[in-house]
């Protein structure tokens, strides 16, 4: 009898153990390739690395030099313009579409995926498609000319003052459907009886949304903001595909700056410093958000 118990014991212990064995390699990989390299980048940002990593410690020199570089400051200003417009327009369009779709209209089942499809594309595809569409010689302007409207002009993508806005257009096109889906889920989650109570209270549609529904969507707003914000900071592929950072440096963002300084301009130390600044900006938004989310769950 005792022998059998030990055997059963062994089996349960093995069962406890197997998931850990299976998970171990991926855990190790994440530890090394994500957190390890974050630490490594942080270290590189304080060395005088040029083309290859070097280990001569220079303190915060790279950060001082980074913020004196005009290219970095352009990238930061571009990011502020891009992120502000991208987040605001996506939120407004997403919320508007969600409210319209929530009116129990026919064909919702067809419309919802149509709005969502752009999200399934990679930013490279979006960027390339919009590059052709916005190119004066190929896309919209050319088509209008062919249709006989020869005065039509739309050459923002070639204009150093306007090119940043083409980035906003393409990014908004890609993401607003996703933001809509988030708001729609939020709208559907609202207790039906609250809407009935508001109806009996005599709230007009406008008052209903402004006073009751939109305040109830606060969690959806917060999630949308956090997701859009970190997407804005990470924006790299869209810029590369759509404008390549140009004309000139007109659409350079921190992510493209980081790549070019690290890998093509032989200033790995400065590139690493810019990467650390980006990481800290994302963390400054994400950590309080995750805290409030997880804290709310615990309650």
């Amino acid at each position: 009898m005792p022998i059998r118990t030990t055997r059963a014991d062994l089996r349960t212990r093995l069962q406890d153990f197997i998931p850990k064995i299976v998970l171990a390699p991926s855990l190790a990989a994440i530890l090394i390739f994500v957190y390890g390299f974050i630490v490594f980048t942080g270290y590189l940002s304080m060395t005088d690395s040029k083309m290859l990593p070097s280990f001569d410690f220079v303190g915060l020199d790279n950060y001082v030099r980074l913020f004196s570089l005009p290219a970095w400051n352009t990238a930061l200003i571009n990011l502020v313009i891009f992120a502000a417009l991208y987040i605001a327009i996506c939120t407004v369009i997403g919320l508007g579409l969600a409210i319209l779709l929530d009116q129990k209209i026919r064909g919702e089942g067809v419309l919802r995926p149509i709005y969502l499809y752009p999200m399934a594309l990679s930013f490279i595809v979006t960027g390339t498609a919009w590059k052709w569409f916005l190119d004066p010689g190929l896309g919209l302007e050319n088509t209008m000319h062919l249709w006989g409207w020869t005065d039509f002009q739309f050459n923002w993508i070639k204009d150093r003052h306007m090119a940043i806005y083409t980035l906003v257009i393409a990014a908004v096109w890609q993401t607003s459907g996703f933001v809509m889906a988030m708001f729609l889920a939020g709208l559907r989650g609202i207790d039906n009886e609250i809407l009935k109570a508001a109806q009996i209270d005599g709230a007009s549609n406008f008052a209903l949304y402004r006073r009751i529904v939109i305040p109830l969507l606060r969690p959806a707003f917060l999630s949308a903001f956090v997701i859009l914000f970190h997407m804005a900071i990470k924006s790299y592929d869209l810029v590369i595909a759509l404008t390549g950072g140009g004309p000139g440096r007109a659409t350079e963002l921190p992510a493209t700056f980081m790549y070019s300084y690290t890998f093509t301009r032989n200033s790995m130390g400065i590139g690493a410093a810019s990467a650390v600044i980006m990481l800290m900006t994302v963390a400054a938004i994400m950590i309080p958000y995750l805290y409030s989310e997880l804290g709310a769950k615990k309650e």
Binding site: K196, A197, I200, R211, I212, L216
Partner: peptide, 14 residues
């Protein structure tokens, strides 16, 4: 008319 609901249906933000 006025109605009292099972879930009370109070407006949580007010």
């Amino acid at each position: 008319i006025a109605m009292v609901f099972q879930s009370y249906a109070l407006y949580p933000n007010m």
